[in-house]
Nucleic acid binder design. Structure first.
Lengths: 147, 147
DNA sequence: TTCCTTAATAGTAACTATTATCATTTATAA
DNA sequence: TTATAAATGATAATAGTTACTATTAAGGAA
């Protein structure tokens, strides 16, 4: 299943730069970073390599709900927290929870192969700026009786 | 925060049809369904209403990792399981886990406001068709020492 | 009831993130 | 050193979603 990956300059640089970061950049952010050293690299090459590299298990592809795909130079399985205000993503180590989730092998007759847990909220910086956020409320014609 | 929603035929129909289903249709699938009764409705109207209705808490917007947005006529908070083969999404009731997750109010100095748990795997139908799936393996120049 | 204001609509264009295509270049095994 | 197939850069295409705009129609006030 593992195709033979050639060690191209572009590919090596993408892995190298990604491993330097502990942020979780998007394909486009990675493109901007590697372009500093390899100005002729194309965005398509970045996308293609991020895909191939994550398929091969060399990097991790993060598909967070409702947002753009991000990538992680760290392969170890961990959870993520996303700031709903500035969109940044941090790692969350919660071994206790990881163990509980991994023990769940079946739900509704599905054979479970992946468990994804993702928190979102306000990061320390945005928490100060934003104060509190208000909740929407239901009213009017739309209310219905029972679920 | 809750704007005054007018009771248009389009809006009422979208809510009504969505509440009939226990599948989790995409915007386009909802468009096809309501078009049967309101042939002149436009896709933009469907998108706009799904957005407004979920902001108002009348329906639920599901942003599953790596896939298209889906909608749920049920507002009650619950988890989902997605089939990696046919893409269909089912509900998962796991009150035990829900309680644990809700008790987590902070991670890495983030103030947690939402917890999303999402399983994926093979649904009963696809499990029979597909048998087992293979794992990718790492090899070659790319290996690096420690994380 | 009729009128008025403004939200909502249909139709369409635009946009964003991602994938595909293809002629050319280049890593690597023979 | 050369042959070959993987990878690249440039660009077009696609999918899903959002924005725009002239027109229609809720729903409160007169």
């Amino acid at each position: 299943m593992n195709r033979n990956l050639r060690a191209t300059a572009q590919r090596k640089l993408i892995v190298e730069e990604l491993r330097k970061l502990n942020s979780h950049p998007t394909a486009n952010e990675i493109y901007e970073i590697v372009r500093a050293k390899l100005p002729k690299i194309s965005l398509g090459t970045v996308y293609r390599n991020l895909e191939i590299l994550s398929e091969s298990g060399l990097i991790q592809k993060l598909e967070m709900a409702g947002s753009q795909r991000r990538f992680d130079g760290t392969v170890e399985d961990h959870f993520h927290v996303k700031c709903i205000s500035c969109e940044r993503v941090s790692d969350a180590e919660l071994p206790f929870l990881k163990e509980i989730l991994d023990s769940i092998e079946g739900v509704n007759d599905y054979k479970i192969m992946q468990r994804r847990l993702e928190f979102s909220g306000l990061c320390p910086k945005c928490r100060n700026k934003n104060g509190e956020m208000e909740q929407p409320e239901v009213s009017g014609w739309e209310r219905h009786e029972a679920g």
